[in-house]
Design a binder for these strands. Sequence first.
DNA 1: TAATTTTGTTTTGCTAATCTAACTTTATAG
DNA 2: CTATAAAGTTAGATTAGCAAAACAAAATTA
Lengths: 215, 215
Amino acid sequence: MNTVTEENYLKALHHLADELGEVNVGVLSKHLNIKMPTVTSMMKKLADKELVHYESYKPLKLTEKGVLKARMVIRKHRLTEMFLEKVMGFSWEEVHEIAEQIEHINSPLFFDKMDELLEYPKADPHGSPIPNRAGELVMEKLRKLSDCLVNETVEICAVTNTTSGFLQHLNLRAITLGTVVTITNVDDYDKTVTVTYNEKTTTISAMVGGQLLVR
Amino acid sequence: MNTVTEENYLKALHHLADELGEVNVGVLSKHLNIKMPTVTSMMKKLADKELVHYESYKPLKLTEKGVLKARMVIRKHRLTEMFLEKVMGFSWEEVHEIAEQIEHINSPLFFDKMDELLEYPKADPHGSPIPNRAGELVMEKLRKLSDCLVNETVEICAVTNTTSGFLQHLNLRAITLGTVVTITNVDDYDKTVTVTYNEKTTTISAMVGGQLLVR
DNA sequence: TAATTTTGTTTTGCTAATCTAACTTTATAG
DNA sequence: CTATAAAGTTAGATTAGCAAAACAAAATTA
């Protein structure tokens, strides 16, 4: 079996590979807040288990087996988030922290029951797709709001930051998944985006706009 | 904070103290399936944290602080069992194993929400009382079915064994909490109990009868 | 391309949780 | 009331996960 620690390394590798394309020891070390020597030795251990391709001084890469394991953790995380919101009544900024712990529970029965009760959801409360039981993950290619041009009308479909501070910032602006916005201005200098939706106008900083995915 | 390991030792100490009155290293070692030297060293560690009173060669005893911590774990365990049954639709023989893991989740919010959704239950699916948030535990004194006499009519209120094998044994006999049985015979030699309920007659071995609590 | 900076690895060492083997204390049985 | 058995402790190792210090490779830059 896998330890919680191993699962967290796999999840991080999957996430960083998705985000950056290539992952090296330094990046992973920063992301997990763990010193590089520790990461190096964990990579050797995961390589022994055939979950990671590891060669000194080369970028890190999950094996197929590693990808599957990582996705099972992601599946448990996202099902949990959905369950916490839909069944237990938590709000989208509360679910991430709890799911970080529950994702390590070892009980297929438990997560399959969640899946059933939720009627096999395809995405979590932040719009991230939920891998199926086979570990397949359909990743729709979405654009960042910060890459949109003036006069475009788009729908907010996902957020790539699930911290409660970020989500509360969106709550204040009444931005939820499904909100349809029209870009009325993009500031030349700082790239702040001005959007209109539901008869309201709000400005969204480049930093925030970079974490909102739209269709 | 406490580790999962520490929580398991505290829970075991609480349970054994309740069951046997006095707990020594050997008993705890057997119960947890951990060798005695390991238990000794953990007891010293817990004594440093003022969770256990420990003196060499003396019986083990939780401090008040230790009792409270233990009860918070028990609370999380039993709330979880109830939640798994009532909200998620698991049966009573499935809930224990999952709850063994979820009891270590660190999120008061999560368990308070369970409590609320369940409308503050006083007992779990096996009839065990749920400690309140202050760590108070009202333990009704119940008798064992195996201690009852012929012609008594009693209600099954709790089981002291939550393994799925045991509970399936009860399922086969259609014995659930709340079942009212009348003792029609107690075997002189092997103490097998014969009971009548719902127009049926069943025999219950001394071993099983000792794990059924009645009122 | 040689020097310097950045990145990554090796070595050494710590803590938590576990074990086995050897020893000590307490309990028990003649 | 000793001798032995049972229970408990001490000592020494191991494994997982982490870090600091020292070292090595790769990338950058002058």
